[in-house]
């Protein structure tokens, strides 16, 4: 019994240094870089496909027998030219931008006030209000768009950007409120008590202490809202009818598919240009974004 116990012990003792050296180099490659590379490949392939298709002439696009589907031999700007000058694409882009920014701003404003009140003022029933807001988030848009459509029409907002600006907060506000409640929780309450003694009012505390410290949280809530609004499909499809008021995701699908003909080149060019603003937006704030999801306020 004692021998059996001692034997594996000595084995591990001698094996340990070897394992350590393996741990430092090869193991990192196998455990870290190879999975990362696979991950990256899978994630970036759609973008690559989109880009390649956008610059491919139709002859190459529809003939994979003689042309390599993964490569372009004679790149062209025809699809982009068609998109920009023969369709209302610039106008779609502008509408999408306007709707996304306005909806994001509205949602952030109300979520900030809601989250602060729920987390810090702790009024009677604040927990239930928080829960109710979260439950609202669980109602799927595919159910909600029918009653919302009635309201939009009655208010005379049908086929205007306001139809979207005012309905997007229905899913943005719950989401942002919950994100911000979590973030406000990470800001030490003592800072606010100290400001209270220093003579600040509630609004001054919110504006001068809490919000500046919650900037990473606000930015990530903003990015989420912007992206969700930018990509939103079902409300945009239901509440907008005229071609020029459409948002990019809806427009490229309804305007660039003529009959049963998919204009793949223009479709992909439209998707590519449409995804660029979001990607640029993300890249600016990625640090804040990560810190808001992982870290707290450091003094």
């Amino acid at each position: 019994m004692t021998d059996a116990a001692a034997a594996p012990q000595s084995n591990t003792a001698t094996a340990a240094p070897e394992m350590l050296s393996w741990d430092s180099k090869s193991r990192r490659v196998v455990m870290l870089y190879v999975p990362l590379a696979c991950f990256l490949l899978i994630l970036l392939f759609p973008f690559y496909w989109m880009t390649v298709t956008a610059f491919k002439p139709n002859a190459e696009l529809y003939d994979y027998a003689t042309h390599n589907p993964f490569w372009i031999t004679s790149p062209t700007l025809d699809h982009i030219r068609h998109l920009l000058f023969n369709t209302s694409y610039p106008h779609w882009l502008w509408t999408t931008m306007l709707v996304s920014i306005a909806a994001t701003f509205l949602s952030l404003l109300s979520s900030t006030l809601a989250a602060y009140a729920i987390q810090r003022l702790r009024f009677r029933g604040s927990q239930y209000v928080g829960l109710a807001i979260y439950l609202a988030y669980l109602v799927p848009p595919s159910i909600l768009f029918i009653p919302l459509a009635t309201m939009v029409v009655r208010l005379g907002l049908f086929d205007t950007p306001f139809a979207l600006i005012l309905t997007y907060p229905t899913f943005l506000v719950p989401f942002c409120t919950w994100l911000l409640i979590g973030y406000f929780k990470s800001i030490p309450y003592e800072l606010e008590e100290c400001a209270l003694i220093d003579g600040a009012s509630r609004l001054q505390i919110l504006r001068q202490i809490t919000l500046p410290l919650a900037i990473p949280g606000l930015i990530s809530a903003g990015i989420f809202s912007f992206t969700l609004s930018w990509n939103e499909f079902i409300y945009a499809l239901a509440f907008i009818q005229s071609s020029e008021n459409k948002t990019v995701p809806v427009a490229i699908l309804t305007e660039l598919v003529t009959g049963d003909v998919y204009q793949w080149g223009a479709l992909m060019a439209g998707s590519l240009l449409g995804s660029l603003p979001v990607a640029i937006f993300y890249s600016f704030f990625v640090d804040y974004y990560v810190s808001s999801l992982t870290g707290a306020v450091k003094e």
């Binding site: 030490p188 003592e190 800072l191 008590e193 100290c194 400001a195 003694i197 202490i209 500046p212 410290l213 306020v297 450091k298 003094e299």
Partner: peptide
């Protein structure tokens, strides 16, 4: 008309 010093100082980090 009081001033308070907190355990973790509560300095405004920003």
């Amino acid at each position: 008309d009081i001033a308070m010093v907190f355990q973790n100082y509560a300095l405004y980090p920003h």
